[in-house]
Write a protein that binds this DNA or RNA. Structure first.
Lengths: 157, 157
DNA sequence: CATCATTGCTTGATATGTCAATTATTCATC
DNA sequence: GATGAATAATTGACATATCAAGCAATGATG
């Protein structure tokens, strides 16, 4: 009982904890995206993600969105409904497979996509510009490695 | 109207979007931490964060926790109550300033802290080990730069 | 072609996070 | 030492996310 757990304090130094830093970065990036989207288009981040995927042609159906993004099906379903109600998105069930929800942007939806995209791309460039060229070259690779490592569930052998 | 927005498709390639990758990494890290904590201690991530901050001596009060972490005051308040009800944490209002909520781990709380910490430290080491030494050297610096850049709100000049 | 499993999406219940308003206490100033 | 501002924590209302169950349509199997 004499040894205080504080001995391991340096290891617990929060600023050096990977997860903590990622959470903080995620928060900061989120807040930035939310602010930009609210200012330039009056939409939420979840709404933008769907508009961007459909607008760019990256996704055509709810299924595509679920597969190519990390948006949960429930969120897709509800956000899509909101976008439809707001007149930014129109949907249909193709006769080839009537389970599928096919989406296209309305004119208004496309207008929003096209005015918002440059802002979001400029933001992306600004973020990458904050890094040194060598850092830019490796950052996505690092993320990949960390994600793989995060899939492990055992560390004490 | 002839030019499809797909022209900018390569720029929109999701896997190259910083925010998207950070979100995905955050999710993966979260899921890992949740799984480990559930298995070794039966506690949630929010609970662990508070136990760790108090157990390590990094924080002594709710205020400390709010300042040194990114946990919102409301979450601190409610999680603290839960931990108290579970008998892992005890609180008191110091006579020097009776607004402040001072916390200490109970014996049971400390036991959980001490059995959980090695697992979380091993996890942290395993994560860092997934990176090359040069990468480890720069990753926190990169996070710092990106966070600073994420504080900006204007990009189109 | 009947049956069962699978797929795509939706929904309700629950958990979690966020924001604003509120309370109690302390601090600062006159 | 009374008054108003600031601080620490709490609470309720609301938004958002997650999970499991459900439904409808399709596919696969005998």
């Amino acid at each position: 009982m004499s040894a205080k757990a504080n001995d391991s304090n340096h290891e617990l130094e929060l600023t050096q904890f990977l997860t903590y830093r990622v959470v903080k970065l995620h928060h900061a990036l989120n807040a930035q995206a939310v602010a930009v989207l609210d200012r330039v288009a009056g939409i939420t981040l979840a709404q933008w993600r769907i508009i961007a995927l459909i607008g760019s042609g990256t996704a055509k159906t709810a299924r595509d969105i679920a597969q190519k993004s990390i948006i949960a099906p429930a969120v897709i379903s509800r956000t899509t409904r909101t976008l439809e109600d707001a007149g930014l998105l129109s949907t249909r069930r193709p006769s080839s497979d009537r389970r599928v929800l096919e989406m296209t942007l309305t004119d208004e939806g496309r207008r929003i996509y096209e005015t918002t995209l440059p802002h979001m791309q400029a933001r992306q460039r600004a973020l990458l510009k904050a890094l040194a060229p060598e850092e830019r070259d490796v950052i996505f690779e690092m993320f990949e490695k960390l994600e793989t490592a995060a899939a492990r569930r055992e560390f004490m052998e």
